[in-house]
Design a protein around this nucleic acid. Structure first.
Length: 213
DNA sequence: CAGTCGATTCACT
DNA sequence: GTGAATCGACTGA
């Protein structure tokens, strides 16, 4: 008997902790996205931690740029980036300001607004695929670069916010290497997911792109 | 300033 | 399992 998700907003202090503490604690929380068409809610099931400028796998590794500036800002804000020429991905900035750490929200279960999500994700063959993967999640929730820097602790009407939801028992959390991350940061178990949850995305090792000559 | 490739997804074999 | 799509940030000359 799982209790009904707690709709109390999480305070900024939730994000102002070490990213490896925040990342698994995000599992089971409720992400709320408010659009002109209506609200959507997502139960987070899979995340990845990116550990600041010292992390070779992180966009922050080579220092601050216009693209990753949000990661160097205060915690509790979104970092949204554009990748592969067509997709967006959502991160939540954690830790103290300028630490440049964040958590990539990789997958989740749409718990409200599935009709809106289906309209945006026409290729999804079932509802469990609506937000199975970071770019699919961003597409389903209508997230793009206009949400980069958005404050999740900005009150009940903000376009993006985070509710307490149903925290996940650590016994039900699995961890492993990050998906698609190569190089020196590849081996750290910075990916966390809810064990056996059907909305978690499949693991893929880093695959260098082949030369096109 | 041209070349390279990415925290991915989808269609197709 | 393989390759295409698609573009902007970053790199090195």
């Amino acid at each position: 008997m799982s209790a009904r998700p707690d709709r109390t907003p999480l305070p900024r202090s939730f994000f102002d902790r070490p990213v490896l503490t925040v990342a698994p604690d995000l599992l089971g929380r409720t992400l709320v996205r408010r659009t002109a068409e209506g609200a959507l809610e997502l139960r987070i099931t899979e995340v990845e931690a990116y550990e600041g400028e010292a992390d070779p796998g992180s966009h922050a590794y080579r220092g601050r740029t216009p693209r990753n500036a949000s990661m160097f800002g205060p915690p509790g804000h979104a970092y949204v980036y554009f990748i592969y020429g067509m997709w967006f991905s959502l991160n939540l900035v954690c830790g103290p300001p300028d630490h440049a750490s964040g958590v990539l929200i990789r997958a989740g279960e749409i718990t409200l607004g599935a009709e809106l999500a289906r309209k945006r994700r026409l290729s999804a063959r079932s509802d469990r695929e609506l937000a199975k993967g970071p770019a699919r999640l961003a597409t389903a929730l209508d997230i793009d670069r206009s949400l980069d820097g958005a404050d999740l602790c900005d009150g009940p009407d903000s376009p993006l916010s985070l509710l307490t939801g149903t925290p996940t028992n650590p016994d039900l959390v699995s961890s492993g290497p990050r998906t698609g991350v190569g190089g020196a940061g590849a081996d750290h178990p910075y990916r966390f997911w809810i064990t056996h949850d059907p909305t978690v995305s499949p693991y893929r090792a880093h695959a260098p792109r082949r030369r096109s000559t």
